[in-house]
Design a binder for these strands. Structure first.
Length: 479
RNA sequence: CGGGACGUAGCGUAGCUUGGUAUCGCGUCAGUUUUGGGAACUGAAGGCCGCAGGUUCAAAUCCUGUCGUCCCGACCA
């Protein structure tokens, strides 16, 4: 029969036929987003937005636990304000959307729709920081930003995207550096515990770091087409912005100092990572702890007496246990509903029909591997909770195994090219010279994703220039 | 910003070469029978054929322009 391998949904392009089209199909068919009438600006539909809300819920709790406060800054930045930090403006100017008419009148100092808010935070911080007693300032904001991208893809690269941006000011360099690394850990926790996406943590090369930062750290995720996706960044700025914006505080010794700054953010790009890392030819497949609907109850032969009440009872049992559950009583056929919720990636499907009711059981189908089990009704709540843990682990492990299998140590360009053919990371010893980095990009289109924290050297020379190697670097083609 | 593909009902499409009253499927609405892997039948509603010019008795179709979308590259979360 081979029925378990049968493609159940022909509306989605198969991954092996066209991975990019598969991705777009899933985004639309799972009702995560829709296109708007302006290129690059997408509509986050309720189901897609709900996934973002789960991410927000987790991160917001972690941010607050670590002493951060939410604020909200203006959506526009006067052009003159953005100009204040030289590297920063050079990095962002090319992709700014600028408003220069207000109320029918030309605006003399045009307003930039924020592409990021460092400058706004700095302007404010300059006013409210005057003593070491005012530090640290640990602010975060949830908002959207606009970057006029030329090539756009749903969630992965849009002209407008939702994100959080933390902006902090510290008395000492050490404290600020610690902050940047601490927030990176929180992002990593999010991947491991909620998204079931294993991230690779590391530091960016100078070429790849954020405009204006002294250090940029990132979490990188590996997609099944072999490309890496930068999924979040944290930055240590030193005192560069503080100097440019005149942010000074009087220290414990009575002298004036510039505070040390960080910023950090993750965006709705994470949805793209979830979609690609876990999805399959039947559509989206969500890990339980980020799924807006964790379990769906499907009544079978629902017009027969007793079926709907039985289904509602299951729904209530799960809801009372804190499960995000939905009972679908619409008059579609059960088969239609099975496909629909598979396409939407709901982790568990609970079927209840006349046969189950008579036997006092329920049938549970697991989205990510297709297995079906039958259990006693009384055991359902416990089983569901256990399955969430188990499914999360399995999904994480599967992604982690793929990641491990796609890190290839290379010592020459031939091996590098083979690694790119296979997909994933080429792990290389690098001399630290940007010329070699550029050369690799020119030859392979791959870029340095990060200098991983785990620095286990395996060769002495840089394969590009032959000089002494200083760092282990992961190169990959990137989104 | 270069290369490619494409705009016809909510979605997907046929028609375009060779101008002549708009095709089909899905979905939607009403009803009946159904329901353990995308049900069947009957009936109905739904169209500035992306937009603007032009040619013509007549344009979805031919010509010019324009706007937009997607995909692939260069640049960036």
């Amino acid at each position: 029969m081979g029925k378990e391998n049968q493609i159940k949904n022909d509306a989605i392009t198969r991954q092996e036929d066209d991975f990019a089209q598969w991705y777009t199909d899933v985004c639309r068919k799972a009702e995560l987003m829709d296109y708007s009438s302006v290129k690059g600006f997408i509509i986050y539909r309720p189901y897609g937005y709900a996934i973002w809300e789960e991410i927000q819920k987790y991160l917001d709790r972690r941010f607050k636990e670590t002493g951060h406060q939410n604020v909200y800054m203006p959506t526009v930045i006067p052009e003159s304000l953005l100009q204040k930090e030289k590297d920063h403006v050079e990095g962002f100017a090319p992709e700014c959307l600028i408003a220069n008419i207000g109320g029918g009148q030309k605006i003399d100092d045009p307003l930039i729709i924020r592409p990021t808010s460092e400058t706004l935070f700095c302007e404010h911080y300059a006013k409210i920081i005057s003593s070491y007693r005012d530090l640290p300032k640990l602010y975060n904001q949830w908002c959207s930003v606009v970057r006029w991208e030329k090539t756009t893809r749903p969630f992965l690269r849009g002209a407008e995207f939702l994100w959080q941006e933390g902006h902090t000011m510290h008395e000492t360099e050490e404290e600020a550096r610690t902050e940047a690394l601490k927030m990176l850990e929180i992002y990593d926790d999010l991947g491991r515990d909620i998204l079931a996406v294993p991230f690779t943590k590391g530091r960016k090369t100078d070429k790849e770091k954020f405009a204006g930062a002294l250090e940029t750290y990132s979490i990188e995720a590996l997609m099944p087409d072999g490309k890496a996706l930068q999924s979040g960044t944290t930055h240590y700025f030193g005192t560069g912005f503080a100097e440019a914006f005149g942010i000074k505080f009087q220290g414990r010794d009575g002298k004036l100092y510039n505070p040390h700054q960080t910023s950090w953010g993750v965006s709705t790009r994470l949805l793209g990572a979830i979609i690609m890392v876990h999805g399959d030819d039947n559509g989206l497949s969500l890990p339980p702890y980020v799924a807006p609907i964790q379990a769906v109850v499907i009544p079978v032969a629902q017009q027969k007496p007793g079926v709907i009440p039985a289904a509602r009872e299951l729904e209530k049992m799960l809801k009372d246990a804190g499960v995000r559950v939905k009972c679908d009583e619409s008059d579609k056929t059960p088969g239609w509903k099975y496909s629909e919720y598979e396409m939407k990636g709901v982790p568990l499907r609970i079927e209840i029909g006349p046969r189950d009711i008579e036997a006092g059981v329920v049938t549970i189908a697991v989205r990510h591997d297709g297995r079906k089990i039958t259990i006693k009704k009384e055991e359902m709540v416990d089983t569901v909770q256990q399955l969430f843990k188990q499914v999360h682990q399995e999904m994480y492990q599967k992604a982690y195994a793929y990641l491990l299998d796609h890190v290839t140590e290379v010592t020459n360009m031939d091996e590098f090219n083979k690694a790119m053919e296979k997909g994933g990371y080429a792990k290389m010893m690098w001399c630290g010279d940007v010329a070699c980095e550029n050369k690799i990009k020119e030859l392979t289109t791959a870029t340095a994703r990060c200098i991983p924290f785990n620095q286990m050297g395996f060769a002495d020379t840089c394969p590009i220039c032959g000089k002494k190697a200083k760092k282990v670097v992961l190169f990959a083609k990137a989104y």
